[in-house]
């Protein structure tokens, strides 16, 4: 992973070329056991802020246990779409939706949906690392405790397991009782991943998780995504196309609220069907 970082830093001149070079060929990517079934399904799904249609009639199947990247210029609705999946948009009073968005066949915006239980199944990591001002242990244990776990020993097991999964255990195992805000930015972000994993979600939503991090920390997060691939359905919003091509199996390209193209990553980056996608990935607009 170290090499890719260096490449990324030196290869900004010819985006198209770099893009092709960085792509994993299909043969390099192993298929995932038990994966590939539609996990989240959008049908004519639109999101409105008041009268403004931020996401327009999206139709898509997100496949389970694979990594799906969402790319597009800023303001294209990619984050809005991602946040709609675990209903974080509920926090915005003027926001409402039409069409259907299903998770495991059940309507996320259905009348009987309990958004609290939904968010337990669909975890989210945000742009800026946002650990609570508590100890590392308490940060990870926050979710399990919420859902009724009090046994100290069991909690410890979960904390260790989550931190190991997030590749953070070796760095923090000796200072679990220290304030999480004392960690570096990259560590904080991995802590946020670990915190999300501790509630045992099925889907991980990553909203530009590396935009606030330095290249080294970014590489670690990308490594982590590779490790988690196959265990969780992962959706990552990114404005960094190299990152999308490096980490994802499928890529969705949004433009002005519309889902322009949705294909396997190699296909989208080497052989885009839509003119707009090509213009975007070759850097003609951003």
């Amino acid at each position: 992973m170290q090499t890719t970082v260096e490449e990324k830093e030196t290869s900004m001149q010819t985006p198209a070329k770099t893009a092709t070079r960085d792509i994993y060929l299909p043969s390099e990517r192993k298929s995932v056991a038990g994966g590939g079934t539609p996990h989240v399904v959008a049908k004519d799904f639109s999101i409105f802020y008041g009268d403004f249609e931020a996401v327009k009639k999206v139709n898509a199947d997100i496949l389970s246990k694979y990594v799906t990247a969402i790319i597009g210029p800023s303001g294209c609705g990619k984050s809005t779409f991602l946040r709609a999946i675990n209903r974080m948009n509920d926090l915005i009073p003027s926001c409402h939706t039409t069409g259907t968005l299903r998770f495991d066949g059940e309507d996320i915006y259905g009348k009987l949906t309990d958004e609290v239980l939904l968010r337990k199944k669909i975890g989210m990591v945000f742009q800026k690392p946002n650990p609570f001002p508590k100890s590392i242990f308490d940060n990870i244990a926050y979710g399990p405790r919420l859902h009724g776990m009090t046994d100290k020993k069991h909690l410890m097991e979960i904390v260790e397991k989550s931190l190991r999964k997030a590749a953070l255990w070796d760095e923090v195992s000796d200072r679990l009782d220290k304030n999480a805000l004392g960690l570096s930015g990259g560590q904080q972000q991995r802590l946020c991943v670990a915190r999300t994993l501790a509630v045992e979600p099925e889907i991980l939503l990553l909203d530009e998780p590396t935009s606030a991090l330095d290249p080294k920390a970014t590489a670690k997060i990308e490594d982590l995504i590779q490790e988690l691939r196959g265990s969780y359905t992962i959706m990552i919003v990114t404005h960094n196309m190299q990152q999308a091509s490096r980490v994802s199996d499928y890529t969705m390209f949004f433009y002005e609220g519309t889902l322009v193209e949705h294909a396997t990553t190699p296909q989208l980056f080497t052989n885009p069907k839509d003119r707009m996608t090509e213009d975007y990935i070759t850097g003609r607009f951003s």
Partner: peptide
């Protein structure tokens, strides 16, 4: 985990 745990 296919249980629709979030629908009540």
């Amino acid at each position: 985990s296919r249980s629709q745990a979030f629908v009540v």
